[in-house]
């Protein structure tokens, strides 16, 4: 731990620590949740190390990425750095409505979560990325279990992706199967890679998979506001979800309501923090491709990007 800290301290060439200590920040540890995907883990470590350089106490706790919102509301967890619009929007909105949690603004990143195919699929179905072309190729995606329909592997149901509704709304010749986890998605892609079997699966960006398996998102009718509430939106006048997902979903940060008063400087920094797609992808890459441990990846990233985070800290001094 000393090793890590000293690296980070050296890299940041810090502003005086005492400035923050004087700002009446509690000495209780700030509890940062860790989930099971790399960018979130590294980002949490990056922020944790930033706080430590400010003289604050930080602790990490591993949690489920949905149940964490309840813990934030109760104050057991102090903040959350990656609230994906698609996957966690529902839990986020529910927790905000119940109270106890405050929004700390969005990252300068756009997230996209939608149907996706690895590059070898395009060889078999040249019309891609258009969704109509995909539908024409439905035969290519048949499996024993889906009969004569194509197979689309959607994300876990708690990500609320409405793949099935979209298939119905657009009259696609596909059966939707839900994977139970991100890992299950990767396993399917990896299994298909060997024989270059065409597959179409749910995927998102930023994400490590882009680096391992090049590919592209399927282009659906563009998202219109209200596509999920108003049947008239989108090409099918009688159905909801007849659009692609928004190509520019948000990635937010949230905090327990008392963070503003208990660790005012930390909260100030949190609200300033804004990573962009490239930075997030780089954090994930350090772990997923370079195989660093998250802590080391975070120090390394901070070492190379001190100038990015320093202004966020300085602004709160």
């Amino acid at each position: 731990m000393n090793f890590v800290k000293s690296l980070a301290v050296g890299a940041l060439a810090l502003a005086p620590v005492s400035a923050f200590a004087a700002a009446h920040n509690s000495s209780d540890p700030i509890v940062i949740p860790i989930h099971n995907w790399s960018s979130q883990i590294v980002m949490s470590n990056v922020v944790g190390q930033m706080y430590e350089t400010m003289g604050l106490n930080v602790e990490f706790v591993t949690t489920d990425s949905q149940a964490v919102y309840e813990s934030i509301r109760l104050g057991d967890v102090t903040l959350e750095l990656e609230v994906w619009e698609g996957a966690f929007g529902a839990s986020y909105r529910a927790a905000l409505a119940k109270g106890g949690m405050v929004d700390a603004g969005a990252h300068n990143a756009v997230t996209r979560e939608d149907w996706w195919y690895p590059s070898w699929t395009a060889d078999a179905c040249p019309g891609l990325p258009s969704w109509e072309a995909l539908n024409e190729c439905a035969d290519l995606f048949k499996t024993a279990e889906t009969g004569d329909k194509g197979r689309y592997l959607d994300g876990p149901v708690d990500w609320l992706k409405h793949g099935k509704e979209r298939v119905d709304a657009l009259g696609m010749n596909f059966t939707v199967i839900n994977a139970g986890s991100a890992a299950a998605l990767w396993a399917e892609i990896a299994a298909a890679e060997k024989d270059k079997k065409p597959v179409v699966v749910f995927n998102w960006t930023p994400n490590f998979a882009e680096a391992v398996w090049p590919g592209a998102f399927v282009e659906f009718p563009e998202w219109e506001d209200g596509c999920d509430k108003d049947p008239s939106k989108g090409p099918n006048p009688d159905a909801l979800y007849d659009c692609g997902n928004p190509a520019d979903g948000y990635l937010r940060k949230v905090a327990h309501k008392d963070m503003t008063s208990k660790w005012p400087s930390a909260y100030c920094v949190l609200s300033n923090i804004s990573f962009n797609n490239a930075q997030i992808a780089e954090m994930a890459r350090l772990v997923d491709v370079d195989e660093l441990e998250a802590e080391d990846a975070a120090s390394e990233w901070l070492g190379a990007n001190g100038s990015v985070v320093q202004p966020w800290i300085d602004a709160c001094a």
Binding site: D64, Q66, S91, V157, D158, A179, G180, S181
Partner: peptide, 15 residues
Amino acid sequence: IGTRDIGQEMRRTMA
């Protein structure tokens, strides 16, 4: 893995 039984529905309740 991905099922269509009660487990899947329970996962939905997590959101």
